[in-house]
């Protein structure tokens, strides 16, 4: 098999992979909080829905106003992430503020950790692919000694 060498292309891929890992790592703490619905519990009043329609079906996100039970946080016009997609205007549902101004999550948690996991996996996979020639070369050298 023709052996790949650690060249300029591998360097670029490695740098891109490190960027992906940095992005994934920066969102790790937030993803864990979202998955565990770890934050200030409150009530979410649905005001509208934002739907993407495809042939024969659609996917909706509930938009509404959130108020923490202790009154410490109020957010207006934010999406509710996780839970079902019943977005009937006027419905009041439980929600948790995880410390992010752009959304609140369902008390059952949200699956946004999947995004962080995918980015970390992609970064790690690309980084490993890029350094395989280096690993292989060091293994051949140690075997030759």
């Amino acid at each position: 098999m023709r052996r790949r060498r650690f060249g300029p292309f591998e360097v670029v891929i490695l740098l891109a992979a490190l960027c992906l890992i940095a992005v994934g790592a920066s969102g790790f703490d937030q993803a864990v909080r979202a998955a565990r619905a770890d934050g200030a519990p409150g009530r979410f009043a649905v005001t509208s829905s934002d739907c993407v329609s495809h042939l024969g079906h659609s996917s909706c996100t509930c938009l509404g106003d959130y108020a923490a039970d202790d009154g410490s946080v109020r957010l207006t016009g934010v999406p509710l992430v996780g839970g079902g997609d019943d977005c009937t205007a006027g419905t009041v549902r439980g929600a948790v503020d995880i410390g992010v101004e752009t959304r609140v999550v369902d008390p059952g948690g949200s699956g946004e950790w999947v995004v962080t996991a995918l980015i970390l996996s992609a970064g790690t996979g690309l980084a490993l692919w890029a350094v395989i020639p280096l690993l292989r070369r060091s293994r051949v050298r140690s075997a030759a000694r």
């Binding site: 992005v23 969102g27 937030q30 934002d50 996100t61 992010v100 752009t102 946004e112 995918l118």
Partner: peptide, 16 residues
């Protein structure tokens, strides 16, 4: 898809 998801869930951009 991954870039859009990262914009929403990691960089906390508004969905639109």
């Amino acid at each position: 898809h991954l870039a859009q998801a990262a914009q929403i869930y990691i960089f906390n951009w508004p969905i639109p």
